[in-house]
């Protein structure tokens, strides 16, 4: 990552992977024991670890273990995905596994915010639409799912459906301002003024 304007994310295109279930929490996405690290590198292989491997490290049934989904970059999930712990390790692990966009019925807010900070769109649609996409992806593991952030649509096969992208998220991604550090750093003077106006901040 560099300073200055970040790249824009208008489109994400690639094959999909369905990860089904409501209320999938970040403890499942990346179990706490893999967080004993001081960088995010190498987290990808531990994505959904306990869902993917048993005690003896044998593979269990999970889409992320299936060869046909190995190159997927669009994850399709259900409701309240990413709830629980605020750990950014969760989206970091998914990104490092290869995910660039997530389509779902709904997302926990901190998780969606963490995704945005990494330039990963989290777009939403109603339950039925999401399930239809999941089924399609299941049947067409090599087919492209195109997430158009600006137009708020998802296209798979010959079908295009409307999805919702949160306003701020859409602007940030489309205009390439999701790297907020540089953006906010530029306002240092106004920040200092706000600080000085607060009774509890000792600016002496």
């Amino acid at each position: 990552m560099t300073d200055g304007p970040a790249e824009t994310v208008e489109h994400v295109s690639g094959s999909g992977i369905p990860v089904r279930g409501n209320d999938i929490d970040t403890d499942q996405i990346i179990p706490a024991r893999f967080m004993k690290v001081v960088t995010f590198d190498g987290l990808g292989q531990f994505s959904f670890f306990d869902q993917r491997f048993d005690d003896d490290d044998n593979e269990k049934d999970h889409p992320m273990n299936e060869d046909r989904f190995r190159d997927a970059s669009v994850m399709v999930v259900n409701a309240n995905f990413g709830c629980g712990s605020s750990r950014e390790h969760a989206p970091q692990a998914l990104v490092r596994w290869g995910i660039d966009a997530i389509v779902g019925e709904s997302f926990a807010e901190i998780f969606a915010g963490n995704c945005l900070a990494l330039g990963v769109p989290t777009v939403t649609a109603d339950a039925e639409t999401v399930e239809t996409i999941q089924d399609w992806v299941d049947d067409n593991p090599d087919g492209d799912v195109d997430v158009d952030v600006a137009a708020e649509t998802v296209t798979y096969g010959d079908t295009t459906v409307d999805v919702t992208v949160d306003d701020a998220q859409r602007k940030a991604l489309v205009e390439g301002v999701w790297d907020t550090t540089a953006l906010m750093k530029a306002n240092a003077e106004a920040v200092a003024e706000t600080a000085a106006s607060l009774p509890y901040v000792d600016t002496a």
């Binding site: 967080m35 001081v38 960088t39 995010f40 605020s86 750990r87 950014e88 306003d167 701020a168 602007k171 940030a172 205009e175 301002v177 999701w178 907020t180 953006l183 906010m184 306002n187 106004a190 920040v191 706000t194 600080a195 106006s197 607060l198 509890y200 901040v201």
Partner: peptide, 29 residues
């Protein structure tokens, strides 16, 4: 309102943080 610095081009608010607590798991990165 008291902590609003400005509106950002994303439509988000830049909010001043009065207390930032940190611990060992989420801060090193």
């Amino acid at each position: 309102d008291r902590h609003t610095v400005t509106e950002l081009p994303t439509g988000q608010t830049q909010l001043f943080v009065g207390l930032h607590l940190i611990h060992e798991v989420t801060s090193p990165q």
